[in-house]
Design a protein around this nucleic acid. Structure first.
Length: 423
RNA sequence: GGAGAGAUGGCAGAGUGGUCGAAUGCGACAGUCUCGAAAACUGCUGUACCUUCACGGGUACCGAGGGUUCGAAUCCCUCUCUCUCCGCCA
């Protein structure tokens, strides 16, 4: 949620910047400013009447104490009309606040100046490419064939147990999952992230804090009986740890990492995109989250970008980094880098990480603030990134490293898998 | 699932319907003392919104939402959450 004070001071700037996200903000800003005007005048009037009432109440108390009952009763009789006004004005103020909130929540975050204009993924800007694309022979298999050949991931069995998009990992497949999770967590620890194991079910307030609710409700699994949602990413519970907090600046930056399963309904996405590991309803991911002072959040974003790139390099996967265009960015993000690895048998780029700076968009919803010395409390900046999401990494590892002797495990992972080949 | 207790400022913990934004202690901050520190002493110490060029002034907030009252942390109702005991259980 954008800060109202920012919209009020720079309406033109907000309109210009949101145009990059193909969002026409003109009319909604006019509405917001008009409601805000009304809100302030209502409150000024209301506060004035309340002040009068408070003053009279105090006098009545004093008069009773002095035994001047008649005078007190007389004064008491005059308060009736104020109370009526108070009731109406309070109801009005409440309605106005709700209207304002309802409008404010509809506005996406303003993109950073470096975000390219554009509507579709084709308009994303490739900012970095690294690693050689392997030459596979004629007989190269896509990962869904390899998983079957070596019996390491069973998609049909998942259908039996749960449904499509919930694979069962078996034997070396399961061990590879565990190895990757541990490898990613160890790397994050080395980079100074504190590990968190959060709940994977969240309540409504938490979903609102990071921006999943109310508009992306349909993307999350919902446990109706307890009104809880399954997390789509660890970002949600980890960032919300700091909801409604006033942090002392001395404890910033906060750097957290965490492994969780992630659950996504992926309503409405069918077709060849969903083959094999490309798109699942449940998958494993290690996430990194940072809480930063505003003046260093972009430095932190670059640091996270470096970090994620380093992970992919160590796994020897060819990858590219995209700066997402306005049209492809998420609602809440100000700047997002996507990481894509090349999956050599499918001959496709697969998104394995998304690293974003949300500036104050999430912290404003969450009331996540910091206080530096004697300064007034201010909203902190939140950032997060996948480091990394497993399934597509596994897809690329299987396809790119397939040999006649089986799939070769990257060197850095062998201490974790304790085997060198899947065969 | 059953029974009971509770929710107050950064933390701990008082609070009679009016002088309670709230005692007291701890912590934090500033000062005195000291070469410096500790101790001691003194002072100060919430957030949000409105208003003012500013100094300042006003309003709200004692889990949340309603109600009674001229006036509610205090009385009434509803809800949420936490804790303890019992049952069940990885």
């Amino acid at each position: 949620m954008l800060e109202l004070s920012y919209i009020r001071r720079n309406p033109e700037e907000v309109i210009t910047r949101l145009a990059t996200k193909n969002f026409d903000a003109k009319s909604i800003i006019d509405e917001i400013l008009a409601i805000d005007e009304k809100r302030r005048s209502t409150q000024t009037t209301l506060d004035g009447i309340l002040a009068q009432l408070n003053k009279a109440s105090k006098e009545i108390g004093d008069l009773y104490k002095l035994g001047k009952k008649a005078e007190a009763d007389e004064l008491k009789a005059t308060t009736g009309k104020w109370k009526e006004d108070i009731t109406t004005l309070e109801a009005e103020a409440k309605k106005i606040d709700a209207e304002l909130q309802a409008k404010a929540v509809l506005m996406p975050n303003t993109p950073h100046a470096s975000v390219p204009k554009g509507k579709t993924p084709e308009d994303n800007e490739v900012v970095h490419t690294e690693g050689a694309i392997p030459e596979l022979g004629e007989k190269a298999l896509p990962h869904w064939e390899l998983t079957k050949k070596y019996d390491i991931i069973d998609f049909e069995l998942g259908v039996k147990i749960t449904g499509a998009g919930f694979p069962v990992y078996k034997g070396k497949g399961a061990r590879l999952q565990r190895a990757l999770i541990n490898f990613f967590l160890d790397k994050a620890l080395e980079a100074g992230y504190i590990e968190i194991e959060p709940p994977i079910l969240i309540n409504e307030d938490t979903g609102f804090g990071t921006g999943q609710l109310p508009d992306k409700e349909g993307q999350m699994y919902f446990v109706g009986e307890d009104k809880l949602y399954l997390i789509p990413t660890a970002e949600v519970p980890i960032t919300n740890i700091y909801r409604d907090m006033l942090l002392d600046a001395s404890i910033l930056p906060i750097k957290n990492c965490g492994y969780t399963p992630c659950f996504r309904r992926e309503a409405g996405s069918y077709g060849k995109d969903v083959r094999g590991l490309n798109r699942l309803h449940q998958f494993d991911k290690v996430e990194i989250v940072q809480i930063r002072m505003p003046d260093e959040s972009y430095k932190a974003l670059e640091e996270m970008r470096e970090y994620v790139g380093g992970l992919l390099k160590s796994l020897n996967l060819p990858f590219r980094i995209l700066r997402l265009c306005g049209g492809d960015m998420s609602f809440a993000s100000a700047l997002t880098y996507d990481f894509e690895v090349f999956s050599a048998a499918q001959k496709r780029w697969l998104e394995v990480s998304s690293v974003s700076n949300f500036e104050t968009f999430q912290s404003n919803r969450m009331k996540l603030r910091y206080k530096k010395d004697k300064d007034k409390p201010a909203l902190a900046h939140t950032l997060n990134g996948s480091a990394l999401a497993l399934p597509r990494i596994v897809a690329a590892l299987l396809e790119n490293n397939q040999t006649e002797n089986g799939v070769k495990i990257p060197e850095v992972l062998v201490p974790y898998t304790k085997f060198e080949y899947i065969s």
